[in-house]
Every structure is written in structure tokens, then in C-alpha cells.
Design a protein around this nucleic acid. Sequence first.
DNA 1: ACCTGAACACCGTTCAAGT
DNA 2: ACCTGAACACCGTTCAAGT
Lengths: 217, 217
Amino acid sequence: MGKLTARAIVERALEIGDAEGLDAVTIRRLAADLGVTPMALYWHFKNKDQLLIGMADHLILGFGVKGGDDRPWRDRLRELVEGLVRVLRTHPCAKNVLEQVDQGAVPSFLAVWNEALGLARTAGFTVEECCLISKYLLQSAISIADAPVHFRPGHTSEEIAEIVRVKRLGLQSLPAEKYPNLVEMAGPMVAGMTADFYDSFGVDLVVSGVEALAARR
Amino acid sequence: MGKLTARAIVERALEIGDAEGLDAVTIRRLAADLGVTPMALYWHFKNKDQLLIGMADHLILGFGVKGGDDRPWRDRLRELVEGLVRVLRTHPCAKNVLEQVDQGAVPSFLAVWNEALGLARTAGFTVEECCLISKYLLQSAISIADAPVHFRPGHTSEEIAEIVRVKRLGLQSLPAEKYPNLVEMAGPMVAGMTADFYDSFGVDLVVSGVEALAARR
DNA sequence: ACCTGAACACCGTTCAAGT
DNA sequence: ACCTGAACACCGTTCAAGT
């Protein structure tokens, strides 16, 4: 039968987190799902923080950083952000996991960070600027990947439609004289767009900022 | 004596969160600090989520959104992001609070969001683009405001120096062949920079992206 | 209106013990 | 090496009751 391994634990934890939210990922609940005592998990992970780090690492491992090639840094930067967004997008709880974790303790995240640093460096920025830019790039990818309600798996389309409806009503019932733009754009705001739009326009937005500053020096 | 009011509760909660981290903000701990029974808080806030919303609202209330004036949207956009960053910077737990909260339930946050939407609209973006851009702008401001260790109040400079030292060692002891850039730049990476650098360069980065895309249409 | 007391169902985690 | 059992110190929250 499925042996209790660190990997199996992490994967089950991600399933729960994706389907029911990260709050549902509890040592006790997770153990019950795995048919095991809560304490059994402590043999594989020192504590819950380490489990979360394991989850974060597993998330990003799906995105293998391909090291140096000889294309211009703009292309490689765009590819990095696009790839990261695409991978994170497959897990609804990705943003939550990465927020709760000490990112410096996640090996696969460090690999991406290292790559971003290198790219910024070859773009000609100062060391301090590279630090800020690399952090900013990863953070932006995470927030862009944090999809609106629609893409969540594990929900029927009726459930999703209902969630969207409630959210839209919430915005539309706001005082229109205080938040005119929000009320007016409530529909599109809440509707979310296709993942493609997010990927291309969102990534454009982030990458363009870096390119603009690079061109300015 | 200081009466128990929603405002007093929120302010005490923010003090605890800033000084000891948001995890330390617990209904029971907060009540104890206020010299009151845990249940007393439930009269003023329906549950802990509402308390967090109150905290988030209090954070951003310090930043009054000044509505329409006639300057070009670029200037107003930059001012918006700068102002938001500056206000959030005063509270170490700001990012954490805003992450945990349903931002659509925070009135003062909605006001900023509404303003950002309007600015994006006058910049000539489509409705969908405005939605993405406004979310992105606020999210970026939050992440830029999330200062490196240095600015934290409530710590002596020795304590801060120690924290930085540990963090730097953590990076430097990484395998240099796997994360060459991280190891090399560990110093500046962890050192953090002056708030001014963050404010100007960070805000530049974000705003430049929007400007570049606006110019492209 | 505003607060307390006692209770409930949950947490993460430790520690000794089993195989 | 890998897992269990019992216990500890915490949570958020409800509900009835006090003033």
C-alpha cells in the first residue's frame, strides 16, 4: 500500500490545501487522511513549518530552472516569470503556502531567486538594484499567478458561478458615490479573465518595468 | 481609564502584531493585554476575521486618498503608490495583515483600489486591463512596503545586527555551485537598503511598467 | 449595552513507549 | 527506523448569565 513518505505527505497536504484552503491543512486532519496517527508526521517533518516548506518546495520543483543559455536577458527573464506563473497557477493554494513560509528555506525557490539575480545582474543593474528587482519579480509572479476564483479545481461550474455572483453583488452594493469605479467595473473585476490574458498581459506588465529601468541607464 | 472600544482593541492588536508578529495577536492574549475577558472582544467584533479587517482598515486609514485633481495620471499614480508604501512601511505587520484579510471587506482599501482603477482608466487601458493593473499596483505597493528586517521598531540595533548576521550566514553557507549569485550577493541581499532607496527605486519599477504599457498602445 | 464564566471542539507539540 | 498513546498548553467560539 502507499507507504508513508515525506513526499506522500506533502502531496496529500497540497491536495487538501488546493481543494479546501490552506487552513484545512492541519497536522491532525492530514494524519487522519493518511490513515495514521498525528505524531507519525513528526517523524518525517520536525514541525508544521517544515511541512509547509516541503509543500512550497514541491510546488516549485515542477518548474525546473534552466540555467544559462545565450539568448538576451529580456527573453530569459520573460521566460522565467512566465514559467513560474504557469507552475504556480496549477495550485490554488500556492500563494498562501509561499506567504507563510520562510522563502529562504525553500531550495527550489532559492534556485529561481538565484536565476533572477543573475539575469538582473547581466541587465546591468547595481547589486542593490538586483536584490530589489529579484525579490520583486518573484513576488509579482506569485501575485499574478494567484488566479481569480474561476480556475479553482474541485468546484462545479455552478458553484463557481454562485461564488462569482456573490462577489459581484458585494462590490455592486457598495456606495456608488464613494467607490464609483469599483461599482461600475464590478462585473469584469470579479469575472476574472482567461488565464492567457493574465499570463501575457500580467507578465508584460512586470517585465516591462524592468526593461524600462534598464533602458534608462 | 481607557474604555474598551473597537478602536482601542484594533490599536492594541496592531501594537502586538508590529512588535511580536501577527501570530502573537490572539483573542485571548489581546484580551489579557486589555485587562478584560476574551469574550469581551466578541461584543465589538463578530469574530477574529472582523478584527483583522478592522486592523487592515486602521492601517490604511492613515493614508487619505485624495481624489481627482488635474495633474497627469502618471504623477497621481506615482503619488498613490508612494503614499501607500509610506503608510504601510510604518507597520511591520502590514503585509501580513493584508494577506490574511478579504481585502474587499476593508473600506479604506477599497477607496485606494477605486482610485487606482480610475487612474488606470484615464491612462487609456481597457476595463480588463484596469482590473489587472489596479490589483497589481496595490499588491506591489504592499510587497515593496514589506521592509527588510532593519526598519522594525522594538528591537535594539544589536538585536537587528544579530538577525542580519544570522540571515547572511544562512545565505552564505548555501552550496555556491548551485546558487552562485545568492552566495555572492548575500551581503547586500540581507543588508537591506535605506527606506528611501526602496521607496524611489521600487516605486519607479512598478510605475514604469504601467507607463511602458500605456505608451505601447 | 456591555461584559463575565463555564464549556466545547479544535489546534501543535513533547515525551515516553512500543515494534 | 518508524509509529503509537497519553498528555500539555494553547487556540477560536458559543451560550447562558450577570449588571
